[in-house]
């Protein structure tokens, strides 16, 4: 310390050339101050993240009992629509037969459905966030028998995969588990 600080001698710390004790103190103070400012800012930023009560409702349990084969239902999970489909044999077969090479976002149907009978996907178009039609009876299902997004014309198949249109990705599959044969927990 003394060797670098007292080059100018007689207690006056440096004449501008080389490091001085004052430089060190300035840097240390600056670093300490920056750390303190960041620590003080964090709570003010983090408060915008989901609060505990929001996180507490981040899972949704759905009773599958009343859903008939071929029927599609819409449930709300984390404020978003989730499509649950009890698929028919024909639909499962059709989804399994697709040549992955033809898909914009290649994914096997087996990977997208834990149990082939049940398809569970987030019903938000991966293009710009509209809800694709096809869940309710009589709605357009698109060229591939799945869903059709009316906003910009994206077609999804019976596995919820993007087949045609501007959307880049398949409908995402949320984390879910079967609590029993007839009860599923999404999230």
């Amino acid at each position: 310390m003394a060797s670098s600080a007292d080059t100018a001698g007689e207690g006056s710390h440096g004449d501008g050339d080389g490091e001085t004790r004052r430089d060190f103190l300035m840097l240390a103070t600056g670093a300490f101050g920056a750390f303190g400012a960041a620590a003080a800012a964090w709570p003010l930023i983090d408060q915008m993240n989901p609060a505990a009560d929001t996180l507490a409702v981040s899972t949704t349990e759905v009773n599958l009992e009343p859903i008939k084969p071929g029927q599609r239902v819409l449930v709300k999970w984390q404020g978003k629509p989730v499509f649950i489909v009890r698929r028919t044999k024909a639909q499962i077969e059709a989804a399994g037969k697709v040549d992955l090479a033809n898909l914009p976002d290649p994914e096997t149907d087996a990977k997208r459905a834990l149990k082939p009978e049940w398809l569970i996907v987030v019903g938000v178009c991966t293009h710009l966030g509209c809800i694709p039609s096809g869940t309710k009876h009589g709605e357009l299902k698109g060229e591939f028998g799945g869903w059709f997004c009316p906003c910009h014309g994206s077609h999804y198949d019976t596995s919820g995969r993007i087949r045609k249109g501007p959307a880049p990705k398949n409908l995402p599959v949320p984390a879910y588990e079967f609590l029993s044969d007839k009860l599923v927990k999404i999230g």
């Binding site: 609060a51 505990a52 009560d53």
Partner: peptide, 28 residues
Amino acid sequence: AMHYTAHTAFAFDSVERIMRDVNYGWLI
């Protein structure tokens, strides 16, 4: 103000929510 609700039916509860649920709400 991002978490407070200015309504007689919700104001008190929204403040308690700030205290219990909002991240660092108690501190702020």
